[in-house]
């Protein structure tokens, strides 16, 4: 739900301000790849209506966000491709593919894709965080968006602890990826929490 909320916050921000200054389209592209790799099971496995609906919403809304930022004026006119230039194709995709291949529990296409998607998701926030560090001053809605985008994985960790004790659920790759992902946010959360506590604008060092 936090993940969904962060997407809705971003959509709302783009529609309201008609600007995507401070938003990394490259992060959304990473997520689009994550979703496409992971949700291949839409074609051969049914888990629940909720599960299917969320997958469809995640994929379609993420592609829509990319479309808005890259191609749809007036939002696309504000997209700064020079600032948002983190080369994830080299730094994230390659390593995620290699790690996915090495650490997959079995060498099947769905398993390798799923594993690569976990590793890629864990670092997908990097283009966004790096963009914000260049700009330093973060708009309120952008701050809320990034905070919810980080918080959802933290709540997964709580759920994994519960599931481990309640059902003996084990998911080593998911756990490791989730810890890396949440860890990358710790620094941002600190400055976010401080800005909320003191009621000031979020300014990154």
């Amino acid at each position: 739900m936090l993940h969904l909320m962060s997407i809705l916050l971003l959509l709302w921000k783009l529609k309201k301000s008609k600007s995507c200054v401070g938003i990394s389209c490259r992060m959304q592209e990473c997520y689009a790849i994550v979703f496409c790799l992971r949700y291949l099971d839409l074609f051969y496995q049914f888990i629940s209506v909720y599960n299917t609906a969320m997958k469809v919403v995640f994929i379609s809304s993420t592609f829509y966000l990319i479309f808005l930022m890259r191609f749809q004026p007036p939002v696309s006119a504000t997209y700064d491709r020079t600032a948002d230039s983190f080369p994830y194709e080299q730094y994230l995709l390659g390593p995620a593919a290699v790690l996915g291949f090495i650490s997959a529990e079995e060498w099947s296409i769905p398993e390798i894709f799923w594993t690569a998607s976990i590793w890629l998701e864990s670092v997908s926030i990097l283009p966004q965080l790096i963009l914000l560090q260049q700009l330093r001053e973060v708009e309120n809605l952008t701050a809320e968006f990034v905070a919810t985008m980080g918080a959802y994985r933290f709540f997964y960790i709580l759920n994994w602890i519960y599931r481990y004790f309640a059902e003996g659920y084990v998911n080593w790759i998911g756990w490791l990826g989730g810890i890396v992902q949440t860890g990358l946010y710790v620094d941002f959360f600190y400055y976010y929490a401080m800005s909320k506590w003191y009621g000031q604008k979020l300014v990154l060092p």
Partner: peptide
């Protein structure tokens, strides 16, 4: 069983 682990998370 572990071999039939369903990936029920998003």
């Amino acid at each position: 069983g572990k071999e039939e682990a369903v990936k029920d998370e998003l």
